[in-house]
Write a protein that binds this DNA or RNA. Structure first.
Length: 431
RNA sequence: GGUGGGGUGACUGAGCGGUUUAAAGUGCUUGCUUGGAGAGCAAGUGUACCUGAAAGGGUACCGUGAGUUCGAAUCUCACCCCCACCGCCA
């Protein structure tokens, strides 16, 4: 019986791959609008290997001599060898210092390399080049002018941003009354749906160490300003459950049979929205704090594309259950974040704005996060490989509430509850 | 906030300056045995990097970093992390 071992695809983030395919890597970086000096990296890599070689030869000599010294009984002989070793030492000290510096440079350059886009990702500069894959669901025809969610919600006392501003400042909100119950209903719907599919439920910590945050690829460059930081404790507030769930297995090794390992997590999310001054300042569309049900999966490299599609399918399914019209957008190369190799957004239809707004997002980060966090699995032949990580929104509560309120509003200012949520809320309309 | 204890391989755990190539046990793999299973017996069993067509060879790795030394898991210093107990607390 011959074992069929499927080999994982080569990682584009591996120095060996970069060495052998510099042009592919350069192309990927360019498409992603990230400037990295690959030639410099290869040059440093060459130097690094040469120095390493020289140093290792020297150390081999030293180790040999060390054994001689231990064995030699005659004092005189010992002294002689020790003296020779001292000489050798001076050279090795110098080499060690060189190597340290070279490796520092090497790591620095390696760290700058973003995850490269998968081959089917549309090439583009920024969000204007994202590709709409499909529009799903029928946009309701209102026989009145649809109001925006905030107007409706404030009238029904479901959302209070004015008092929130008094308490916490701008970009906060109180959810009240039926809105709260709707949140719980959404959480229940998401968990019921995902538990049936074998996801493991989890409520993670929302604070995390800098090291972990870095491992997820989230506190470099512009992203650094995005997270809340508690200097007294050296902790970051999570911007999404993706962070504390993805880091949960840092340094661990999965057995092949354990993959894919799928989690569904609920957490409050904290975002400084530092780069969004003046953008979406009204209401609760863009706030510093919101709740979210998030999916996360650790998969085998060869399965991550499939897993990513699976996540997208789930997200679409949830939107279909709520009967909210949406469209699926494939994010282009230039609009992908550093850790991301491929990403889709789902945008819900908002009648009052007469346009789609993002409610979901799902990303395949391939082995980018796994490498930084050292998350691996042992395959059937006993070899260790990095896993791939995939994340996706089940429900970002605030934005989903907005979509529900807008799409289910009635002429008299009341809101119908989506049928699928009624068994959780116990009421069918809000007025 | 206070006081202790500790970080060694997949895991438990010994070692505290030179046959450590990290003991022993557990687990795992293979073989023998068996009608089958178990037990028993035997052998094997880390990771990363460099080099090589391959077989192989080499180096590093005992929380992290620096230092002492011809030689460090073992000694010194700094840092990080974990645990237990006390106090406070939903």
């Amino acid at each position: 019986m011959s074992k069929t071992t499927t080999h994982p695809p080569p990682s584009m983030l591996d120095i060996k791959f970069i060495r052998e395919n510099p042009n592919k890597v350069k192309k990927g970086c360019k498409e992603k609008q990230v400037k990295v000096d690959i030639d410099k990296l290869l040059e440093v890599d060459k130097k690094r290997r040469e120095t390493l070689q020289a140093l290792e030869n020297m150390r081999a000599q030293k180790n040999k001599a060390s054994k001689e010294i231990a064995k030699t009984k005659v004092e005189k002989e010992k002294k002689k060898i020790i003296l020779q070793m001292r000489e050798l030492d001076r050279n090795s000290d110098r080499l060690t210092k060189n190597l340290k510096e070279i490796e520092r440079k090497f790591n620095e350059l390696m760290f700058q390399i973003p995850n490269l886009p998968l081959e089917d990702v549309p090439i583009g500069k920024d969000e204007r080049d994202n590709v709409v894959l499909r529009e799903v669901g029928e946009k309701l025809k209102f026989d009145f002018k649809p109001k925006d969610y905030l107007e409706i919600a404030e009238k029904l006392d479901l959302i209070d941003v004015k008092r929130a501003a008094k308490i916490a400042g701008t970009r906060f909100g109180y959810l009240k009354k039926e809105a709260v119950l709707l949140e719980f209903a959404l959480i229940n719907l998401a968990f019921d749906n995902l538990l049936k599919r074998g996801f493991i439920p989890v409520i993670p910590p929302v604070m995390m160490k800098a090291k972990m945050m870095k491992g997820m690829g989230y506190i470099e460059q512009t992203d650094r300003e995005e997270a809340y930081y508690l200097p007294k404790d050296g902790l970051f507030l999570a911007g999404t459950a993706e962070q504390p769930i993805g880091t949960m297995h840092a340094g661990e090794i999965f057995a092949e049979e354990e993959l894919p390992r799928r989690y569904v997590g609920f957490s409050t999310c904290f975002r400084r929205e530092a780069g969004a001054y003046g953008k979406d300042t009204k209401g609760i569309l863009r706030v510093h704090q919101f709740d979210k049900v998030e999916m996360f999966s650790f998969s085998k490299p060869e399965d991550s594309r499939k897993e990513h599609q699976f996540f997208l399918e789930i997200e679409e399914n949830l939107m279909k259950l709520l009967k909210i019209p949406y469209r699926v957008v494939q994010i282009c190369t230039g609009d992908l974040g550093r850790p991301t190799a491929s990403k889709y957004d789902i945008e819900a239809w908002l009648p009052s704005e007469n346009r789609y707004r993002e409610t979901h997002s799902t990303s395949n980060c391939t082995d980018f996060q796994a490498r930084r966090l050292n998350i691996r699995y042992r395959d059937k032949s006993g070899k260790l490989n990095f896993v791939h990580t995939i994340n996706g929104t089940a429900f970002a509560i605030g934005r989903t509430l907005i979509a529900i309120i807008e799409n289910y509003q009635q002429k008299d200012g009341s809101i119908l509850v989506p049928e699928v949520l009624q068994k959780y809320t116990g009421f069918k309309e809000i007025k």
